[in-house]
Nucleic acid binder design. Sequence first.
DNA 1: CCATTTGTCCCACTATTTGGAACATATGAA
DNA 2: TTCATATGTTCCAAATAGTGGGACAAATGG
Lengths: 264, 264
Amino acid sequence: MAEAESESGKPQGAGTQTLLRGLTLLNCVAAGVGDVKGIAAHLGTPRSTTNRMLASLVAEGYLHHVPYKGYLLGPKLIQLGMKALEQRPLVAIARPHIEELAQATGDTIHLGVEENGEVFYLDKISGTRGLEMRSRTGQRMPLASTGLGKALMLGMVPARWPALHALTCPPGLPDGRPRPADWPEFEAQMARYVAQGWAMDLEENELGIRCVSAPVRDGRAQVVAAISIASAVPYMPEDRMAALGPLVRATAEAISKDLGWTAP
Amino acid sequence: MAEAESESGKPQGAGTQTLLRGLTLLNCVAAGVGDVKGIAAHLGTPRSTTNRMLASLVAEGYLHHVPYKGYLLGPKLIQLGMKALEQRPLVAIARPHIEELAQATGDTIHLGVEENGEVFYLDKISGTRGLEMRSRTGQRMPLASTGLGKALMLGMVPARWPALHALTCPPGLPDGRPRPADWPEFEAQMARYVAQGWAMDLEENELGIRCVSAPVRDGRAQVVAAISIASAVPYMPEDRMAALGPLVRATAEAISKDLGWTAP
DNA sequence: CCATTTGTCCCACTATTTGGAACATATGAA
DNA sequence: TTCATATGTTCCAAATAGTGGGACAAATGG
């Protein structure tokens, strides 16, 4: 079984084939592939091997099994996921701050970090305005089109901006879809955001949704996360955004202080 | 390596040692054991094997690694956990529990969620007492007059109760129709239900039908559903309801645990 | 500075996993 | 009903994937 080896002879994740296969299987099911045949196809394993793993995962509660119907992610994964959130000190530390912010604004608050060139949503407090945002904890989004993402980009060297911007706006993208400004203007905006210490998202990720955001720094002054206040356009006129900017920034700095950061 | 085999000679999760070990490892970390030595001890594996698995899990994002500090659950688990919540086939999960409850009581069992200020029936198991209830899966009912609804209301801020109560009892409602108690008394009842963790419906929705109910919570301790035991008055004297209360509650909590909820 | 714990390699041995095959059962469409 | 297909279940010889001991370097924390 010739496995993919990158260039030199290092067999990436060697010595744990069964484990990695099982985890890939879980991702398969997470992606919505719930039938044995489909799973076996994705994994490249024969039916007998696939069934053996499925049975074990079901027995341990990592999968749900509806006989002759299909497989779904099980309760044990919910438990693990929740624990994973709890264990992130960032989430625990930021909670009280973003709760206060949610209270004060009535809008939806997000907490996220950068991961592999994307935003990773770590926490969300839904606003009290009745409207529900599509965003979800555990979700990923592009950096350049989201408020959170732009705040995270404020902590990177500007040299990385073009690539990230391009990644969000691939050439030949159909019109009519929300997207960030084109490059030269995008760069100008970012420069302004750096200067003021907070960023904006003007319906660039989702039509009708605007937000203001700010970066969170750790003890080494590195940007490690970002928070944002998001709401529907009617609740987010220009002047309100201008007023909220310093507020997100202050909250982000409060969190940063809890992480050991000290104001310059 | 004598593995635990339950009673007869069937080796429980055979053919997936590495996978199950890896998952046990994740649970280890979830339980707060973040050092290699501790993990190896819990698993009963030598350092070399333990490290190999750890490295793979870190590489795939299932664990966080702070070198020479320890291991924490990783972002991939947050993703999977959230997906699991989305996929949560409430009905499938609750089924075995409510079937058991139906078996034990012989009464009609309902499973429902809140939707737009109403109860939405997701599942129903008819009782074995010969009488058939009008309720149907997919049906909607008021919150304040049904057992399910009141259990769902237990998870809301009490500030929402008056509106929901009023919605069920519009002014000028003709007499003789079943209805919940008038406001001050209704509130007193709800307070008692909150305290005991389960609710009652005394022919408030349908004459001749009484039921006891309890809320079901998810991993975030949010009330996401409710279950109820319903039957005709002759089968539901006061003292039986008092006895069934703790039973519905226990069943509801069993379902909650399957959804990732942990007892406070 | 020392005592521990950890990260990283190596490698011979074998227990663990593999995957083909055959059969029983359930599902859904005709 | 029938059929065609997908699924659940078991077996077993082969060999590969995983094991675990050991030796070394590096980092930690007192």
